[in-house]
Structure formats: C-alpha cells, structure tokens
C-alpha cells in the first residue's frame, strides 16, 4: 500500500477569466518512507499538488489517498512546511513549536518538554523566548521545521523549505533534514527548484511538465545512504543523474519561459 497516491487528479481553479487548470490527469504513487522530490518549472502546479495531499484543497477530478484512505479534510498524519513563512508572529519560538502537541491534546508540560527537545535538534536552543521577527530567515525556517516534525507526521510535505536560505545554511539544513528523516522515516514529498538539492536528498525525483502539470518522468536515485549533500554532488554518478534529469526538465522550463514572453508580447 502506498503512503501517497494521486490517481488521475485534475485540479481547476476558478479565476476572474474563467477556470484555470493547474493539474491535469496527474498520477503519482509514493511508497511509505520514501523521500520523493518534485521538480518542475515555476507556476506548474507543485504547491497545488501538495495542498491536495494535505487536504487543504480538493481535486476537481480523480482521487487522492494518504495511507490508503481517501483524503477528506486535514489529516493528523500529515505535516506541511509551507513555501512562505507561516510561523505565528505573536507566539514565541517555544510556543510556536509546542503549539502542535498542545492543539492535539498534550499537556502543557509534555508539549514544552518535546518542544525543547526539538529546538535542540534544529539548533535553536537558547532562542525559546524570542519572537519570529527577532530571528533570521534561516532560523525561522528551522522553527517551521521543528513545528512540523514535533507532530511526527507519517507524511511530510515540504514546499521549497530551503529556498530562502543561503547556500551554506542550505546544505547544513539538508543534512539535518536527512538525519531527522532517518529518525522516524516519514514519507516525504519535497518540492524544490534546485535540481542538485533534489538529487542529493531524494530516493526518486519526479519531473513535472509545464502547467497544467502532469508527471513527465520519474528518476530513481540509487546513490548510497547515508549521504552528505556537500560531498555527494562530486561523485560521477551524481553528475550523470543531474545531466539526465536536466535534459528532461529543461524543455519544460524553456516552454514556461517562452509562454511568459509571448504573454508579455500580447500585452
């Protein structure tokens, strides 16, 4: 049984100028505990795919299943690290991270204890009492990560979680993520623009077409684990995979680019 299953999914949004089809006949299955990366040109429908899996949106056509169950609203099994900052600005770091367990019924003591553990794990011990605006962008991302992971979700959706970070912090965070993933082995759906990041982290890389998105190719990344994301990119196998996947992605990126240019000309 697959942890995530998207079956013939189409998603159309209503817009002022009629409907816009973001996803068209998308089929994707992710087995339990797999780390699956999604790459695709900007605006193709990657975030939309995650919001369908999370239950925040419903498909227009087709079926979405998580853990074999049809998605019907938000499931407690799912964690979601959003593309944009979504930590609560009026709560301290500690309150932000302990919010999940508190809302799920844990006692305050228990929740705070867990939150302290997770803050230690993401390297934010000592920042418990700060408000988000007093943190750097990278630190806020780590709060968001701890906030999601503390619930120990069986399915973890991540939408370009590291795109706001500088290159160094990013590779440190990637290693951290792999280490944390190894702890509880959730199924991960990881959206990124960075092909290197996708290959370094994932078991499989899914390439999406220019919108309306559907799966174009799926590549299995059989690089050995545990991996170090800094070093792995210099192995010949990595370079070869990169080349192969880029060939597939490139035409979609170019198509998106041409479209946006012609759209400009029309205007």
């Amino acid at each position: 049984m697959d942890a995530i299953d998207l079956d013939g999914v189409t998603k159309a949004f209503r817009t002022p100028h009629g409907t816009y089809t973001a996803l068209h006949d998308l089929n994707l299955s992710v087995p339990a505990s797999e780390f699956c990366a999604i790459v695709g040109p900007t605006g193709c429908g990657k975030s939309t795919t995650l919001s369908l899996v999370s239950g925040l949106e419903r498909p227009s056509v087709g079926h979405v299943r998580v853990g074999g169950q049809p998605v019907d609203g938000i499931s407690s099994e799912v964690g979601f690290v959003f593309q944009n900052d979504a930590v609560l600005p009026w709560k301290t770091v500690l309150d932000n991270v302990s919010a999940g367990p508190r809302w799920r019924g844990a006692s305050k003591r228990e929740a705070v204890q867990q939150a302290r553990d997770w803050l230690l794990r993401v390297g934010l011990a000592g920042f418990e009492d700060r408000h988000p605006h007093q943190l750097s962008g990278g630190m806020r991302k780590r709060v968001a990560l701890a906030q999601s992971l503390i619930n120990e979700p069986r399915v973890l959706l991540m939408d370009e979680p590291f795109s706001a970070l500088d290159v160094q912090t990013r590779s440190i965070m990637s290693n951290e993520l792999l280490r944390l993933w190894d702890l509880t082995k959730p199924t991960v759906l990881f959206v990124t623009h960075d092909l290197e990041e996708a290959i370094a982290l994932a078991d499989r890389v899914v390439v999406m077409t220019a919108g309306p998105a559907t799966v174009k190719d799926i590549f299995t990344i059989d690089l050995p684990r545990p991996r170090s994301v800094q070093e792995i990119r210099f192995t010949p196998q990595f370079v070869e995979l990169y080349h192969e996947i880029w060939q597939s992605l490139r035409s979609e990126v170019e198509l998106t680019y041409t479209r946006s240019m012609t759209a400009l000309e029309v205007v």
């Binding site: 925040l56 938000i74 799912v78 959003f82 979504a86 609560l88 919010a99 809302w103 799920r104 999601s148």
Partner: peptide, 18 residues
Amino acid sequence: VDRNLVANARILGAKRRH
C-alpha cells in the same frame, strides 16, 4: 487574517476555536 497562517495552524492540529 493571513490564510497561510490559518492553513499552517490547522495542519498542526488546531481546532476551530484554537
């Protein structure tokens, strides 16, 4: 209210009153 914040809170387990 920022819909993103609401979505995040709901996924983290917030009930309506939370």
